[in-house]
Design a binder for these strands. Sequence first.
DNA 1: GTAGAAGCTAACATCAATGTCAGGTTCAAG
DNA 2: CTTGAACCTGACATTGATGTTAGCTTCTAC
Lengths: 121, 121
Amino acid sequence: MRIGELARRTGVSERSLRYYEQQGLLVAERTPGGQREYPEQAVDRVIRIQELFAAGLHSKKIAQLLPCMRDADGGPSAVATPRLVADLVAERDRIDRMITELVNSRDVLDDVINAAAQSRG
Amino acid sequence: MRIGELARRTGVSERSLRYYEQQGLLVAERTPGGQREYPEQAVDRVIRIQELFAAGLHSKKIAQLLPCMRDADGGPSAVATPRLVADLVAERDRIDRMITELVNSRDVLDDVINAAAQSRG
DNA sequence: GTAGAAGCTAACATCAATGTCAGGTTCAAG
DNA sequence: CTTGAACCTGACATTGATGTTAGCTTCTAC
């Protein structure tokens, strides 16, 4: 598929898809005319990338991580170096703390929302 | 307490604490000499603010939300306007999606970490 | 009163993904 | 062939919390 369809199907802007490619997160074939041509699998990959960005990882770390990820198709995956593993453990712990904070914040919002609902019957 | 202690106890920089005040998120008494003096309660409040920032709320929305939050001391709290409630519901839903994404990302990291551990015995 | 730590304001810098625009090229359908 | 939609590269802008620095003032302990 071409970039417009991938953008539509993932909800990620064309600008960002080109940026991902520039950062080495996403590869694309090119048509003879130079336009990007993505495989079906790109949809999942872009969604993963988006999630990792949302989790606060920087593109450089995502680039290191991606080859080690088991894809849905179960393709061969590289093994993370000890150095990378240490980084990933730190990231995972940070994400865990982040999740805790997010749950707290959601509960706070729920509390305010419910209080307002109740105060109006 | 003064700003240095508050910073130390919350893990939030002095710079950020002053910024919070400028954004109307945090109030402080002033000594005759003009230095900020915070009540004990400020510690909890700063942590809440930090969590809300981590949840992706902007300072303007936090400023609207804060008066409606039930503090730990159970003080009187304002009731959110219907307009604000609508905003908060949207934020809560966004946070819910964010949590889902974060859990996905954490699982991906765990997977890579475990695969590396296992491949080395 | 004095020295050093801690605080104040104000201004400028940073980061990193994403938005946007300009000027040109390719693709697909009539 | 032509036309309009879709795509290309490259450059510049934005965002918003936070870092950093400078120059000055206040506080605290001696």
